[in-house]
């Protein structure tokens, strides 16, 4: 096992809440505000971890298990994700299928916890969550299939390593389309604008936030941290596709990967600043569109 491979997960554990801080700072700048401190999410996490908890009398162990299982799943998934050209801790043919499986487990746990409260708000959020993810998953996997075919490899690490600047030179449009598709999936899976608005204050319009209305204290800290890690995972995925990693030595690679992840966060912030949330009925079109883009890329890449 490569000791270097320990660095990406550790960086993710330390830096992922900063991504949310960066997004909020970019949004504040666009709005002409000063915005919350960059480290605000760390403060929030520390505060939540020091609190007690209040549980609804309707809930059972499913409600308490949701955040724990969700965070454990996304932590396991971290071991599968390379950063820049640094290989992941675990790499095997089809590791990205395990990655999507783990994210699915996280979703199932959170949906179960939401339904456990018996609240219509949370039921509605859960319903929308499974609706959006059912449409985002084909787009994600078709995009990965396109990349796997381009790289002729079946593990994330090897795909990232095989995609070099030569690919960008020869099949640039293919990769560009895939990156756009992956970007749309990132926004949908992480409950960002234009699919979901993390800052809305009306329960009826939320998706992710409304599912966690009843969570508090350490449970909510787990959820918040899990969401930050999930954002990191997708940002690292998009970065890995864009950066031609094969040609650099490990340390510049790592810096480039890190830079890429934060650039993605800035990009999310820009999108959130210049766009409004889409009507819910339009969201399927967006996700089917993402899948269609990825499929087009696949067909373009056929020889």
């Amino acid at each position: 096992m490569n000791l270097l491979s320990l660095i990406p997960p550790v960086l993710a554990l330390i830096l992922s809440p900063l991504l949310l801080g960066v997004i909020n700072r970019v949004k504040a700048r666009f709005a002409g505000r000063r915005g919350p401190p960059l480290l605000q999410v760390y403060y929030d996490l520390a505060k939540l971890l020091r609190k007690g908890a209040v549980y609804s009398r309707t809930t059972t162990w499913v409600f308490r298990a949701g955040p724990v299982v969700g965070l454990a799943a996304v932590l396991t998934a971290l071991c599968l994700m390379p950063l820049g050209g640094v290989p992941a801790l675990w790499k095997f043919p089809g590791d990205f299928i395990l990655l999507t499986g783990l994210l699915g487990l996280m979703r199932f746990a959170m949906v179960g916890a939401a339904l456990d409260t018996g609240s219509s708000f949370e039921g509605m959020g859960a319903s929308r969550e499974v609706w959006i993810s059912a449409l985002a998953e084909p787009a994600l996997l078709v995009a990965l299939a396109t990349l796997a075919r381009q790289a002729q490899e079946l593990s994330l690490t090897r795909i990232c390593a095989a995609l070099s600047e030569q690919h960008w030179l020869h099949t640039g449009p293919v990769l560009a389309l895939v990156v756009v598709a992956l970007g749309l999936v990132l926004l949908a899976e992480n409950a960002r604008i234009p699919v979901d608005d993390p800052n809305t204050h009306l329960e009826l319009t939320m998706i992710h936030e409304v599912m966690v209305l009843d969570h508090g204290g350490p449970d909510f800290a787990f959820i918040l941290y899990g969401a930050a890690l999930k954002l990191w995972l997708f940002a690292a995925l998009v970065t890995g596709m864009v950066i031609p990693a094969g040609s650099l030595s490990p340390w510049p690679n790592l810096v480039a990967g890190l830079g890429g992840v934060f650039l993605v966060a800035i990009g999310v912030g820009v999108v959130e600043s210049v766009m409004a949330r889409l009507r819910l009925l339009i969201v399927p079109q967006l996700l089917v569109g993402a899948g269609a883009l990825a499929a087009t890329a696949f067909l373009l890449g056929l020889k």
Binding site: G52, Y55, T117, S119, F121, L213, D214, G217, D219
Partner: peptide
């Protein structure tokens, strides 16, 4: 999570109903 909650107040109430 259990150790964190061990010495703190853990209350029970109704589900958030607006």
């Amino acid at each position: 999570r259990k150790t964190l909650l061990a010495r703190r107040t853990v209350d029970a109430t109704v589900t958030w109903d607006c």
